[in-house]
Nucleic acid binder design. Sequence first.
RNA 1: GCCCAGAUGGCGGAAUGGUUUACGCGUAGCACUUAAAAUGCUAUGAGCUUCGGCUCAUGUGGGUUCGACUCCCACUCUGGGCACCA
Length: 811
Amino acid sequence: MKYNPNKIEKKWQDKWYKSDIFYAKNGSKSKKFYLLAEFPYPSGDGLHVGHCRSYTALDIIARKKRMEGYNVLFPIGWDAFGLPTENYAIKKGIHPSVATKKNTDTFRRQLKSLGYSFDWSREINTTDPEYYKWTQWIFLQLFKNGLAYKSKIAINWCSSCRIGLANEEVVLGKCERCGTKVEKKEKEQWLIKITEYAERLIKDLDLVDYLEKIKIQQKEWIGKSEGSLVKFPTEGIDNFIEVFTTRIDTIFSCTFLILAPEHKFIDRHKNKIQNIEEVLEYREKSKNTPDAERTNEERAVSGVELKGIKAKNPATGEEVPVWTADFVLGHYGTGAVFADAHDKRDFDLAKKQGIPLRTSIEPADKNIAVKVKTLEICFEGEGILYNSMQFNGLSSAQARSKIISWLGEKGMAQNKTNYKLRDWVFSRQHYWGEPIPLIFCSKCGWQAVAEKDLPVKLPKVKKYKPTETGESPLAEIKNWINVKCPKCKGKAKRETDTMPNWAGSNWYYLAYAFAKNGKYNWDDKKIKYWMPVDWYNGGMEHTTLHLLYSRFIFKFLWDIGAFPKSIGPEPYKKRASHGMVLGEGSVKMSKSKGNVINPDKVVKEYGADTLRVYEMFMGPFDQMIPWDAKGVVGARRFLEKIYKLFNRKKLNKSNAGIELKKIMHKTIKKVSEDIGEMKFNTAVSSMMEFVNAWNISDKDLSEKDSEDFLKILSPFAPHLAEELWFGAKFKGLCCNQKWPKYNTKLIEEEKFLLIVQINGKVRDKIEAKAGILEKEAKNLALSSEKIVKWMEGKEPKKIIFIYKKLINIVI
RNA sequence: GCCCAGAUGGCGGAAUGGUUUACGCGUAGCACUUAAAAUGCUAUGAGCUUCGGCUCAUGUGGGUUCGACUCCCACUCUGGGCACCA
């Protein structure tokens, strides 16, 4: 009989998916385990082998946990709103929902063809009105709690997609999706106050078990910096210009101020700035400089003085000039800085424009100190203060707190914490997203749609294309837009913007707790039972987007009591991440390179189990790894060997070998531990070693050992394990069995290879009893011919003995 | 520029203070075959060798240690993230 995976796999998948064996049981008394894999965006390209890698890994964990007696929730669904589907629909002239249906059907078929043990009864779809009813409900709660507001802001505008982009969607000044240069455009947008949660989003990372690099990336993205606000009086104009600084210890060297070109001070005092035309011209120029060009490191600093404007340094009482320069950002801090010789950009600008400079921080290195004082080089580090009145001689750190309290007493300075994180632009001018459930009334302002009227369904339109003006296509459907104001019943209009991609994935982990066959009945009890997620796996690319957003939304829902408080303020207990699968030669897989591996083809040619085993074996799970078509063959050979051994040497109990049993138990130990640590590659290799040992042995496996082997194989190659389990006439389904335990006694070896070193170099290897101590080991070593030769008659100076490992003789 | 991760045979990798190169791929030889494929077995880091072995090798240079792929310092390169953040 030949191993025929196509036949075997279909058979077992039918059996599994027609039953409820992979269904999670709400409220079961067994210990729950919620294992979450990021749900896919169902693109028209179908499943990627990268999806298979992470889903196989999690499927292995889910199957093992189930065998260990946990009540496992391992769900799947579709994050289906978004631009690619919309663009596809526009191109093909079909409704995006039709494209979505087609794509999800493909994904579902592909995922099932790989035998994943998802709970398909809880499948979710973010584009289902029953689902987005809750997405809209969450938005309304944000709105009602004052966390959603509309504001005219300069947004990142992609002229090709005709869409406003969140900062997170701009990569190196280009649109993340299409690569077009992003422009600045003023537009009314809905924003969400994620910044109010900045501190908690940092602090609560202490409560969770995330990979350290994920925590670091989140913290860096939020970008907390502690400093102070300092007032620079501007007599006769405004009262003062306020600046943010983390280096108030350098204030005595401040010789000028710099404002961001867009700073409102300039607008307020146009008539007082003598060279206002020049200043406005500079502002226009900097506005049109795309961020991409700013990344040019060699770009020289530029700036313009606001002539006729002076400010007073609150520390020295000196009058200093005020400049504007585009390296000062309007949206960070107060949009204004004080400038001095201890900042590289300030230093460069001053040198270039002939602005006077003065130093006040002395570096520890005397040679550098000389060059700093003569303004030959710019010193940005910390040191000892001079030129700083009563603060002379203090270190930078000491001086900072003293200067703040000194200026603070005069009302000129205070402590201040700043974050790089900005509020989240939440509206999109596109069709294929959740409508924002708000109504604008010219009398009453923005009003929430009544909760009983949710969902606000997407209306049918003829054209999905964004309009020339950049407005959403919904803006053209008059009978949908025009509604009554929920408050005064007068004429009002619906918001026509839709929500961004992230809206649906902000809360989907909650949906799985209560979703059933396409119905979404929010259920506190079920949420309480399943949440938080025990183990969440996804890509590193979502660390600063989805992961941060969803943590924020969860915290918000927790705050307003949308589910029981006892769950705690964090949605995910543990977060791990997988490495990408690259094309051969370590380049990214892409259609244009023609190196995309289609999982369907691999399944057809080699079988699902082969694909699963190969993707686990190819390398460490968290690392990027190139696809190797030849490597797939190795996985297939491994499975074939197992199939042959089970059929050829079918359970010859009388010939069972104790040596094989020992290796079996070592393998159980290794595989059990490795799965928990996501070291799937070494788990597979240890099973390969076992099979090799069995193959060359003239003994066979006992019935118990065969059972155990199939059980540990089954998470990796579930179809083959099931087939062989059935073929051996074992009871029930293999995937329903109890995970095997290893016997410690069987793992202990009676003998070992004693490594004998002389001066740390291996000179002999002697087989010895496992229990021997130093004395016996020494005798054994010194009686070896080779060792005697190497000793050259010398006496050992020192002997190091490591139990069960080696003996090192130092001469 | 800053932060994080990494560098081991022809290739993917294993080993986290104690036999470097497990497992897999590839390659070579042998067996089976009319032949090929498939399969099985054997060999496979480099150099030297009197065929007993010896020497060298985990990016580079130092250090700690009886002993370093592993720990420490400096550097080079590769990948990822952030970046005019005051």
